[in-house]
Design a protein around this nucleic acid. Sequence first.
DNA 1: CGGCTGACGACCT
DNA 2: GAGGTCGCCAGCC
Length: 121
Amino acid sequence: MADRDLERRVVGPGFHAQVYAVVREVPRGHVTTYGDVATLLGSPRVARHVGWALAALGEGDADVPWHRVINSRGTISYRGDTLRGVQQTTMLAAEGIRLDERGRVVDFAARRWPYPSRVIG
DNA sequence: CGGCTGACGACCT
DNA sequence: GAGGTCGCCAGCC
């Protein structure tokens, strides 16, 4: 992380909003990880909360492309919710992102969003 | 106020 | 690669 601006600790008030703000910036056809979002928010260790924040998304947050957020292994985190996983796979496929037989994003490294510094602030 | 819960991740057998 | 452990910390009982 080159930009010190991005290292501000924002975990606390408005954590959800911060997560959504970052995820909204993920371009179509790209993916990012919970850990990357957490890192952008200045706290690399709060990856769990990123997923948790996304789980709290409602219909009013339809502009948040939550499906572009996957785990660090390049796979979808179902966490028991198979239905959600299938939906995510479908939405990613609509953007040209395919999964291999083991559920891993094809060409994950190239598809990974390089998160530009202008995301926050 | 205390305990529990995780769309995770890094690390260790 | 496949399992298991531990840390993390904002919400929700």
